[in-house]
Design a protein around this nucleic acid. Sequence first.
RNA 1: GGGGAGGUACCAAAGUGGUUAAAUGGAGCGGACUGUAGAUCCGUUGGCUGAACGCCUUCGAAGGUUCGAAUCCUUCCCUCCCCA
Length: 406
Amino acid sequence: MNLSDEMNIIKRGTSEIILLEELEQKLINAKKTKTPLRVKQGFDPSSPDIHLGHTVGLRKLRHFQDLGHEVYFLIGDFTGMIGDPSGRSATRKQLTLEEVQKNAETYKEQVFKILDPEKTIVVFNSHWLGKLSFVEVIKLCATYTVAQMLEREDFANRLREKRPIGIHEFLYPLMQGYDSTVLRADVELGGTDQKFNLLVGRDLQREYHQEPQVIITMPLIEGTDGVEKMSKSLGNYIGINENPFDMYGKVMSVPDKLLLTYFELLTDTPYPELAKIEQELKKDTVSPLIIKKRLAKEIVKIYHGYHEANEAEEHFQKVIQEGKAPENIQDLPISKQILKDNKIWVVELIKLTKQLKSTGEILRNIEQGGIRINDQKILEKNVDVDIKEGDILRIGKLNFYRIKID
RNA sequence: GGGGAGGUACCAAAGUGGUUAAAUGGAGCGGACUGUAGAUCCGUUGGCUGAACGCCUUCGAAGGUUCGAAUCCUUCCCUCCCCA
């Protein structure tokens, strides 16, 4: 593969590369000396579930691996205890050591759905940051001035608006930069909100007489609401551990305007194909629904495989679009003893599913027409229903149970 | 060190002695509609009881005043702002 092909793979979907020429030079040198580049990205272990937003960076790391480079997957277990102020109006809460480490474990399980384990080195920054002496910390601080720190938009804003900035928050960029010097990173990846921190890494590497890392920022994708960036705390995320149907359905709930971005950043759809999709959307030759279904299937395929993706699609078609019961319905075992003349009080029946949390919720569902037995709405709470083996109980739109009498 | 503001349900935010299980918005849930779980509209949202406006729990924590407290008093915990 020649240099420009490599560059095209790397450039896809990026927001900014600083500096492009340095990256080219590094790639050339790597090839010449047969030394893979050391590509670093840090992850904050404060929320343990990886969602599609994280995969934007992870997939870029994978691109580097596919080109033969090494990935340093850095778990910010130490920095996680301080709290990264990036993009936050308020100071982030600090995690305990145990919380951070527990989260880190679940993190590792998930990232290898995307990264190549052979070419990934997982590192924890507590290993070196935890050993720094106070003198060393002060020396590190001495490399930066308050004025430099205040260049960061978030700090500047908070200062102007007289909102608090913790002293420790100034240390975050320094620590992240220090990580780069320890790992001797050639490239560091991050979201656009990380730009400042990534740049600090370059400065510190110079300070430590290293060649500065190239920094690559990736766009932050909006979540299923189409407004806020995808994040767990906002509840607009699609987790990569979610089951195929939920994943498919959540992608389907994304506003149309995000279709192209999702295709570009979350799938490997080649550029000519992307251009075609763009045209289809623009000229309205293909319904956005069809295109979105293609996207949903594509994404489910990446995390669950082709077969599961097909199933998710069929399921969606049947249950959501046509409002019918799906093929695989879970059994609801009912023992004969609790039946009286094959009858059971509806509320009791629903309780057995454990689907609804309280009696109040069950009653509300009944009143509002959310309960069906064999497609027949039950609208009255004081009824004992006749049930037999194989009857289908439906709660709301999505939850089906097949009665099984023991 | 001095002065001030505030902690209310999943979140945000009203409420300052009874009519408050607590306005409103968001989120959630259900329905209708549709090209989707999107948009829109309607309904609904502490728990228990075969349900009655009956009982239990909830307005930072613990006590107290009162027939009655989210609302008043005391102590404590926490958060924030201004001045130094």
